[in-house]
Design a protein around this nucleic acid. Sequence first.
DNA 1: GGATGCATGTAAAATGTTACATGATTTA
DNA 2: TAAATCATGTAACATTTTACATGCATCC
Lengths: 173, 173
Amino acid sequence: MPQSKQCAESLSELEGTTLAIIKEAGECTPYVVRDVFRNSPTENWSGSAGAIYPLIARLEKKGILLSTEEQVGKRKRTLYRLSADGEKALKNWLLDVKSGAGIGLDPMRTRLAFADMYGADELHEYVRQAMDYMMAEIPPPKSDNPLLEKTHQIWLSHRKAAVEEILLVLERG
Amino acid sequence: MPQSKQCAESLSELEGTTLAIIKEAGECTPYVVRDVFRNSPTENWSGSAGAIYPLIARLEKKGILLSTEEQVGKRKRTLYRLSADGEKALKNWLLDVKSGAGIGLDPMRTRLAFADMYGADELHEYVRQAMDYMMAEIPPPKSDNPLLEKTHQIWLSHRKAAVEEILLVLERG
DNA sequence: GGATGCATGTAAAATGTTACATGATTTA
DNA sequence: TAAATCATGTAACATTTTACATGCATCC
């Protein structure tokens, strides 16, 4: 069947992920969204204030998010939640096959495409160090969901296996 | 040993990759660089003119690239090559362990972190469709190096395996 | 009570996307 | 020779980073 009418403009990855985070929380502040991004294991989502606050403001202006002001002690804060349109947009984003299928960006994959620029031993050593670093230093996403940690480990180990298999193929020439 | 003195500012992924592409070619036009990006299997590097031309201009201004004007028929074009500084910067980028270790961005990984927002059958069906799409529709990088196609296939199959293993874990709860 | 970090942002600058413009060359 | 596409960009706009600003709360 055809995609039926998608939301006029579809969401970017950052937008979709932001909606999913807010949906998971039910309702939350931009600060909480930032925290999720900052605690994610990827280096690509900085969760910088200058990215998140304007993004959420845009989504509200489009009617995808709704907000409530709240007073906590002496401080005011703004809670956001999905509107009905927001729910639809999130659903579309979650179910969009083409974008979910994309293989994304992986810095080691990129570097391996230029394997011939390394010396043979150099490449080996580099990959070994990088995979060690990954296993030791890339923290699982901080979350109360224990499955996330498990799936993170699965992801890392498959990534390592892929890199090592590629290394073998490159050596055999 | 300490990193000794890195190049003052290190290269972004886009910059490093651009240098590697130019280095591989020996010397080439921005158009050729764009073509490599557009023929790469990832959706994240558009290779849009507005990204590449200014980027290369910046790198030249920094002294990392050198240029030569050339007349071909009635057309003028500019060829770029690495300077000595450029070679050093590329080497640093290729050998930087921390950035090579980063797990990057993967749209399916992102979506799986929100697995609880899908119905059980829905998630299954979605993942199946996406992996089918990936295998059928994501083209290997166009290149004269046959190894790239092979390593591309290896990458895809490991990615598929990771996603399917995660799916299993999520089902078992 | 001073330092550190939490929570809330804004502003300027860099970067990247989208859309346009233009002429040359190839192909149908 | 008309259409396509190659090759070269530029301009306006959108997004993101970096850096700053501010006040509250906590800990040392």
